[in-house]
């Protein structure tokens, strides 16, 4: 078990290495005039060269990458070219914002899609139509528009929650919740439909299986069969969808951050990439890949635990 986790983490580190390397060399190939960007249009040749030397941009590319890697191994992610803020503290400040939104949104998604999926699978008929409708709508309706409408109704008209900005959990739990509830709802919409459909589909498959009939033949109640036996067996495939959802929500958080003016990870990454702020870009990439690796690992461990064939052998 521990060997398995270590092996997976090892493979994850290889992945981190490859992805950051690609990012690094691509950025260099793109030749973004970093020094000019920092100094502005009026900078002289000498000023540019001096800044390049200061930032280490005059060294060979390979050497720059190795320097960065060595730094990472010592826990040093470097300093932003533009703000001089250490990348590590920059990430530490932004990641909680995005993670708050993503995690709360995932909890919404999970709870609502389990309820919807189970209800649709056990009742079929009208609830199926509702589910189909939600699914189609969520695909059609631009999330950006939904966000704008929600802000308009709840923040501007009703003034229940703030329209923009972020309050940290430590500062004020209720403020925190109020600041992320709208973005989390917007982010959930697409996921609820797809996950509920997935749960409904696998539940219907499970309810049609032989063992369900045999359990019924022993006088076991329909409720117990649905919620204990069928749902347990249907949770494997649903869990995989859930993990893919995490990755895609994390990716689309950027749009949400822009609408709600949240100082999040996506905005941080976006700014850095536009400016060519290489240390920040690499740090951001490192953390996103690590996050994906860890989430995938957890999902595999949980689904392995759910499946006795994997767990026991």
């Amino acid at each position: 078990m521990i060997v398995y986790i270590l092996r997976r983490l090892g493979a994850g580190l290889v992945l981190v290495f490859i992805v950051t390397a690609i990012t690094f060399f691509l950025t260099h190939a793109a030749n973004i005039p970093v020094a000019n960007n920092i100094l502005g249009a009026g900078a002289t040749q000498d000023q540019v060269a001096a800044l390049n030397a200061k930032l280490g941009l005059d060294q060979p590319i390979i050497e720059q990458y190795i320097n960065w890697l060595v730094g990472v191994l010592h826990g040093d992610l470097g300093i932003s070219y533009f703000t001089s803020e250490p990348v590590a503290s920059g990430i530490a400040a932004r990641l909680p914002v995005t993670l708050s939104v993503v995690v709360v949104s995932l909890i919404f998604t999970l709870v609502l899609s389990v309820i919807l999926g189970v209800a649709a699978a056990s009742k079929r008929g009208p609830l199926d139509v509702v589910l189909q409708g939600i699914a189609t709508l969520s695909f059609i309706f631009p999330a950006i528009l939904l966000g704008i409408i929600l802000v308009y109704v709840f923040a501007i008209t009703l003034q229940i929650v703030p329209a923009v900005g972020y309050t940290s959990l430590a500062e004020s739990p209720s403020g925190w919740f109020a600041s992320i509830i709208l973005p989390a709802i917007v982010l959930s919409i697409a996921g609820i439909a797809s996950l509920a459909a997935q749960i409904r589909g696998s539940l219907i498959d499970e309810l049609g299986r032989d063992y369900v009939r045999t359990l019924r033949s022993r006088g076991i109640s329909d409720m117990s069969i649905l919620l204990k036996h069928a749902l347990r067996n249907a949770s494997g495939p649903a869990f995989t969808t859930f993990s893919l959802l995490f990755i895609s929500l994390f990716g689309s958080a950027l749009f949400i951050e822009k609408i709600f003016a949240l100082p999040g990870f996506g905005t941080y990454a976006y700014q850095a990439t536009i400016q060519g702020d290489l240390p920040v870009m690499l740090g951001v990439t490192l953390f996103s890949v690590l996050l994906v690796v860890i989430v995938n690992l957890i999902v595999d461990l949980v689904s392995g635990w759910l499946n006795p064939k994997v767990r026991v052998s």
Binding site: T214, S217, R218, G219, R232
Partner: peptide, 24 residues
């Protein structure tokens, strides 16, 4: 009917493996 199935009447299926819940 369910009460009767748990007591008076019982059932043996055809396929042994698919009639046991794999997760329990």
């Amino acid at each position: 009917l369910r009460k009767m199935r748990g007591s008076v009447i019982a059932y043996i299926p055809q396929e042994p493996m698919s009639n046991l819940d794999p997760s329990f």
